[in-house]
Amino acid sequence: MGKFNRQLVNEIKKEKEQESAQLKLREKYEVPEDVMIVEKDNMIKFSVRIIATLIKITIGIIIFLLTVVGIVSLVFPETRNELIFQLSNTLMQLKKFLNI
């Protein structure tokens, strides 16, 4: 037996993806089976999607950097002592602010 025709396999995969997308869209818009739904993007949807992606990437980078700072501050003794001092100082300020 020879290899599968890659173009044929790719076409079949695309057809299956399109069928599943149509099924989801039919459920979303409650349309009968004999209608093909085509969703078009407009500028607002595109902008919202791009902004949401940028926000997710930014939050991921911030979380990564905070994780690195936390690990570094726990590994090295000098930064660990400074971190503990800052945390205790912050707790004292919160107690003053909240009158506890």
Rank of each mutant, 00 (worst) to 15 (best):
L23D: 10
Q7A: 11
L66P: 03
V9T: 06
G70R: 02
L66R: 14
L91F: 10
F76G: 03
I100P: 00
Y29G: 00
N10I: 12
E17G: 04
S47Q: 13
F46D: 11
R26C: 00
M92V: 14
I59N: 15
K14C: 05
I71W: 04
N42G: 04
V9Y: 03
I44Q: 13
I44C: 08
I50Q: 14
F4S: 07
M1F: 14
I59W: 08
V72Q: 05
E82G: 15
V48N: 09
V48G: 06
M43F: 12
G60D: 04
F76W: 03
P77C: 07
G70T: 04
N81S: 13
Q18S: 09
L87N: 10
P77K: 05
V38T: 03
N81Q: 15
L91V: 07
T58Y: 12
S88R: 09
L87I: 11
L23T: 07
I100N: 07
Q22A: 01
T79K: 02
V9N: 03
T53Y: 11
I50N: 12
E19F: 02
L23C: 08
E17S: 08
V69T: 11
N10E: 12
R80G: 04
E82C: 15
Q22M: 01
V9C: 06
N81K: 11
K24Y: 05
E30G: 02
